[in-house]
Design a binder for these strands. Structure first.
Lengths: 137, 137
DNA sequence: TTGCAATTGATAATCAATCTCAATAGATTG
DNA sequence: CAATCTATTGAGATTGATTATCAATTGCAA
């Protein structure tokens, strides 16, 4: 009856579960390719396209964070469900969730000041974490 | 004598000038591909690889801003030379340069707090500018 | 169990970006 | 001005990530 929302009947498959689980096992951002080869190495026969689809769905459902760096999309299981940002190690991919109300307010204010609507913001900090910095010396 | 800095003797070519000029003519972010086809349409015989190289050089010299969105690199002639961020219209690409010392300080503090070194940050706000919002109604 | 549409996955296609390398053309020197 | 040296160019090949295709598979509801 509802032509606008076709109910989006999502089916549960072991593939989707595998992707979600694999994502939960890590505490840093990973690319679809990395996740795919990790799953393959673990014996799974899951296809690459399926990993891409599953990750896109998780991100759309808010169950995963998504960001782009250096030409590739990175995903991470989303811990705190609210809006937040990340401090990411450029070497090992480990990420720390950070929230900053001040930044949110600033972004909103700047957009409003210039007459922009529906503002979204991209705020991420990349650096080298203490462990990786030590390892590099 | 300086083995670290080989003087980087940059030559001046009409191609580099063309890219710089084309970039200056716009007031929003453009991709290398867009700039290349615009130049071609205007009669230039410049090659795509050259546009990529010129843009990378401009960005490295601080003469252009660079950001990534939706899998492609976007460039813009840089007005103010210092570090700053952008408020970008997702519809027409127009960009407003914004600077916020508070955000810089916050990013530095967050990185330091978690033991991260060499922090860089990505801070951009996307929205729909007043003109585009009006046009969409 | 049956039927059907959502899902999968191997592979082809796409798209941005980079690399290769021979030809070209700034800059410098005589 | 001419010769020389080498950075730069550009057409096309290549890489790498992501998406599209489509026949075979498989949840799931009746």
């Amino acid at each position: 009856m509802n032509a606008i929302e076709p109910a989006a009947a999502k089916r549960r498959t072991w593939q989707r579960d595998a992707v979600r689980d694999a994502l939960l096992e890590r505490d840093g951002f990973v690319s679809a390719q990395m996740l795919h080869s990790a799953l393959r190495d673990a014996g799974s026969t899951i296809g690459l396209a399926t990993v891409y689809r599953a990750l896109a769905d998780l991100a759309a459902d808010g169950a995963a964070d998504h960001l782009q760096h250096d030409g590739e999309s990175l995903y991470r299981a989303c811990g705190s469900s609210g809006h937040h940002h990340h401090l990411i190690c450029r070497s090992c991919g480990r990420a720390v969730e950070i929230s900053a109300d001040a930044v949110e307010a600033w972004a909103r204010a700047v957009a409003a000041e210039h007459g922009f609507r529906d503002a979204e913001h991209v705020v991420d900090v990349f650096g080298t974490c203490a462990d990786c910095a030590r390892a590099a010396d």
